[in-house]
């Protein structure tokens, strides 16, 4: 049902293009870019670029989740620490992640890690902020239950605070997943000669609008699939 709208848009696009309303060199035409996409899929280039881009995005998301949840849990549990860290967070957070590209390039060279590092920086903040708030919002009674059972602090965090905060944390991770893809593709367009972003730049420079469109829609489709998979994560509540 949800597919009806995009399919209708593609059909209209095809019609407008054939009728000469949309310029072919810029807008291509659905029937053409499906062919271009199929060809890129068949010869393996598209899949290799996808593995590159989504591999970097996944790596970024994992790093940001581990770091963001750990720091967020600590700040959420200890109010004074949160207040102490607030200034640092407020100063670092507005740095546009793209501004870190030169630095990351210097450190990691032209590599997957270069993209992942920049994307991880961008993903870290929403996960950190959401985790801090979710852990701070955990019912103090649950923490008391852990204290009464004489659990050491790490166990109180793992067995009580984090599971109780999990629904909130998952929202943060889902938001961050989208950011990871956007930032990774951006780094590839701007500098890193790899992945889907670079593929689009090259296709545009060699005047292949069909391939630019095909790659762009492919990013959307795979991104949608990744988000769907994240939503379907088997979480018991």
């Amino acid at each position: 049902m949800g597919a009806a709208f995009p399919l209708a848009v593609l059909a209209l696009w095809e019609l407008l293009s054939r009728g000469g309303v949309l310029a072919e060199d810029g807008f291509s035409r659905p029937s053409r870019f499906f062919v271009a996409g199929a060809k890129a899929l068949a010869d393996g280039t598209l899949l290799a670029q996808t593995a590159q881009t989504f591999g970097a995005a996944a790596q970024a998301l994992v790093i940001a989740t581990v770091a963001g949840v750990t720091v967020g849990a600590i700040l959420g549990l200890f109010r004074p620490l949160e207040r102490a860290a607030q200034l640092t967070i407020d100063a670092l957070r507005p740095i546009p992640s793209v501004a870190l590209i030169p630095l990351s390039l210097l450190i990691f060279g032209f590599s997957r890690e270069m993209s992942a590092a920049v994307a991880a920086f961008a993903c870290f903040w929403p996960i950190l902020i959401v985790t801090t708030a979710a852990v701070r919002g955990v019912d103090p009674r649950l923490i008391e239950v852990g204290r009464l059972l004489a659990f050491p602090l790490p166990k109180i965090v793992l067995k009580l605070a984090l599971p109780a905060a999990l629904p909130g944390i998952l929202v943060g991770i889902r938001v961050a997943a989208g950011i990871a893809i956007v930032v990774t593709v951006t780094t590839e367009i701007v500098t890193n000669p790899r992945g889907l972003g670079y593929a689009m730049t090259m296709a545009a420079e060699s005047l292949q609008p069909d391939l630019v469109w095909a790659t762009l829609l492919w990013v959307g489709v795979v991104g949608w699939a990744a988000n769907w998979a994240l939503e379907k994560l088997p979480i018991r509540r």
């Binding site: 019912d139 649950l142 008391e144 009464l148 059972l149 004489a150 599971p163």
Partner: peptide
């Protein structure tokens, strides 16, 4: 001076003391 396992507490608001997950 701190909670210990030999002393168990049953709270009035049971719903808040249970782990819903």
């Amino acid at each position: 001076i701190a909670p210990q396992t030999e002393l168990a507490v049953v709270f009035q608001d049971y719903a808040r003391a249970l782990l819903p997950w």
